[in-house]
């Protein structure tokens, strides 16, 4: 039994299917997430695959700040992701609302709606930082 469990933890750490969802931001973070998939950074060498389908997702990358409309969409998406899942907030907007925090339609960072596991600061964070953020959240799968 111990070996099966060990293997499961190992598989979960090695095989992360990701999806990114951009909320009310400037889109800069999703550009950098796309860039992280491509030859220079290549997320797939860590087994991270871009799925774009919540039902296949292990790690959700949230970029941008939450507004009154996309709050429901984000909640909906999270409900469709089967456990165990990892939620990474990418970029200053997803952390706190960033520069738009005072705008009338903005509620705040992603943690107003969901429990965020890893915060990746930066405006926008470099692809290296995104990769580092995802990989540092892997310890969640140890339990």
């Amino acid at each position: 039994m111990g070996m099966m469990k060990h293997l499961m933890v190992r598989s979960r750490r090695r095989s992360l299917w990701m999806m990114h969802f951009c909320l009310g931001g400037c889109n800069g973070c999703s550009i950098e997430i796309m860039a992280a998939l491509t030859p220079m950074y290549d997320l797939e060498r860590f087994g991270i695959l871009n799925t774009g389908n919540p039902k296949h997702t292990d790690v959700l990358l949230v970029g941008g700040s939450v507004n009154h409309r996309n709050r429901r969409t984000l909640k909906n998406l999270i409900d469709q992701i089967p456990a165990p899942r990892l939620i990474v907030a990418v970029g200053t907007c997803a952390l706190t609302g960033g520069i738009f925090n005072e705008a009338y339609n903005i509620i705040g960072g992603a943690n107003r709606v969901v429990d965020v596991d890893v915060y990746v600061p930066g405006c926008p964070p470099k692809p290296e930082a995104v990769i580092d953020g995802i990989l540092s959240g892997l310890d969640k799968f140890e339990q």
Binding site: G24, G64, N70, I99, E102
Partner: peptide
């Protein structure tokens, strides 16, 4: 409406030099 932030209205709280940074974003 999913990305609407209302940043044109930010002019009331940020001065015109700070707005440069908002316009970039």
């Amino acid at each position: 409406g999913y990305v609407h932030r209302g940043l044109e209205a930010l002019v009331v709280s940020k001065d015109f030099r700070q707005m440069t940074r908002v316009a970039e974003r």
